[in-house]
Design a protein around this nucleic acid. Structure first.
Lengths: 342, 342
DNA sequence: ATGAAAGCGCTAACAT
DNA sequence: ATGTTAGCGCTTTCAT
């Protein structure tokens, strides 16, 4: 027998309206009564019925705000698709989405978007954007107004977000090292391409990779770490120079972060297609193309669809069923792709 | 403005009760009225509100039957976990499960289980078991009684199941070949271990593997295909003999189907740990152990959790929202695991 | 501060 | 054959 609001009301000797007020933190109930109801609900292990709740809210749908980089950023397409499937499942439960695409590079826009959404009365926010003091303040502001925020794909640490859903960057590095060790002979030399070692996120993959090499007894050697700043030109220039200087000494490249197209182009320029073992991350068009042309051997992916799906789902469960996220960091699974698995 | 049953009733000049009868294929409505209502519903693009439906069904939950091999079969654990998470999501929408674990090897038990479930009045059935004439008849019987059946993990072809959710066996073979080609030198020789080439399912992976080798210009050679009948002893004996006879000629083993533990043991016996490239399928304990011990290089997995999750979800959407499955075959994604990705 | 009652969209039992 | 009505569990408005 499932316990309903009616049952609680009976046991507490009050009306269902009062119970509803208490359970939803609405004002107008004496503290004493409030406590009594709460303890009964707790004892009876009350869980609200989602279908009923959704039905009652029919006229006033729940809106969830989503703050993310502009649509042009390819990478987020998969995440959005995951969000959409969750939204599809939750449509009849009265869930609506409100996207805010904010200009990359401008943290203040992200921070402002959060405040706007809160003022518009959204029930929760998904945030994937820069980490910045202003942003942290906005997230805490939302939390203070009882609007839960989840961060996804890239975290904002040190603020009151309810949890983070994304990749385990360190692990991608580990896995990349595992792959390299399986396809290269002992004492082979590899290059690492990253964005900038100043960024925690970029560093994590590199560190994971190095740890992975160490776990294999350092039978492979890192010849050089190239910081391409995620830009085509920088990446191309530096990688080109490295391949020229070290001539035939390089056996593999791990593109931890950065412009994969640039890497592919350099490899083509040096006519090393298939001669170098190349491991990269994510499944953007350039990576897919590189895989198909057999220039890239493996790409490591951490289920962006699932990141989107889970983020919305967790947010929904939180506001709808009062469910607390199970962990502060939800990492999506790490998967390896080769051309045949596309 | 969402269109409700009430709106249809108004436009058709009938009561909501009548509309409900028509929309749910219940008897007691003149054909003429029936047609009118149907066409209006169609025109208005009516979609039932799941929350309302679930709420109304509160006292009479929907039961879905699940027919699968006994709990001892390790492999199905992951699938069941996927089913559970879908059930968790659908709990408040009035979904209950009824498991029927039937003895492997006995198709008549599977066939009987389907009929029993139909007689008990389940709203849909998930079936993963032997393919057999009796089974096909039972599935068609269920279909005739308006109880939709989905097959999962292993299909039953030529019957009225609404769709199949499972792996793309041919593709696992392809991917395995892709991996072998990346870790072995040209002209290396590989063994294939399978259950029995008489089974379509077992053959598919082998064929996929061979096609994969061909796509790489047959730079690898299949030395022998071993049929181990999924049994430890047969597999051990045959593989042992093959490794003894061909001595150092073997460079890799693809365990398409069969007892992975047996393969690992043979490799240990011949002291070939790490000297042979080994690719297998699925993530059973033996495979996991083999990966950790660095005896198995890769295992190819097709998301069993997702198979379970999707199966229930598709069934639910079918009976609850009248949604037709998008395709007859739903293949789950193919993923590659190495020890580091565990 | 609290209770009573109407309503969300759909189903089912009971009337007609 | 069709209409009417009372729920399903929760929210909300209007009384008290």
């Amino acid at each position: 027998m499932t316990v309903t609001i009616r049952e609680i009301a009976k046991q507490a000797g009050v009306s269902r309206g009062t119970v509803d007020r208490v359970l939803n933190d609405r004002p107008g109930v004496k503290q004493e009564v409030r406590d009594r109801i709460l303890s009964i609900a707790n004892e009876l292990n009350y869980v609200p019925n989602i279908a009923a709740k959704a039905l009652a809210y029919q006229k006033k749908p729940f809106v969830f705000g989503i703050v993310m980089p502009p649509k042009e950023i390819q990478f987020f397409e998969a995440i959005r698709s995951g969000i959409s499937s969750a939204a599809e499942e939750l449509k009849d439960l009265g869930v609506r989405l409100e996207y805010r695409f904010v200009d990359n590079q401008k943290p203040e826009e992200g921070a402002a978007a959060i405040r706007e959404l809160v003022d518009e009365g959204v029930s929760g926010i998904m945030y994937s954007f820069m980490d910045d003091e202003l942003v942290r303040e906005s997230i805490d502001f939302a939390a203070g107004r009882n609007v839960p925020v989840v961060t996804f794909n890239s975290d904002v640490e040190g603020c009151k977000r309810i949890c983070f859903i994304g990749q385990d960057l360190h692990k991608s590095g580990l896995v990349a090292a595992g792959l390299m060790n399986r396809v290269l002979q002992a004492d082979a030399k590899v290059l690492i391409v990253t964005g900038s070692l100043k960024f925690h996120a970029h560093r994590s993959r590199v560190e994971g990779f190095k740890q992975g090499l160490a776990e294999h007894g350092n039978r492979l050697l890192v010849q050089q770490v190239i910081e391409g700043y995620d830009r085509y030109v920088d990446t191309f220039t530096l990688l080109d120079r490295a391949l020229t200087e070290h001539a035939d000494a390089i056996d593999g490249i791990y593109v931890a972060t950065g412009d994969i197209g640039a890497c592919v182009d350099v490899i083509k320029k040096h006519k090393k297609e298939g001669a170098l073992r190349v491991v990269c991350n994510d499944l953007m068009p350039a990576a897919e193309q590189g895989l198909k042309e057999r220039i890239i051997d493996f790409t490591i992916v951490q289920n962006p669809e699932r990141q989107g799906y889970l983020s919305l789902r967790i947010l929904f469960d939180h506001v709808f069923a009062g469910k607390q996220p199970e962990m502060e960091h939800h990492y999506t699974e790490t998967h390896i792709y080769i051309p045949e698995s596309l």
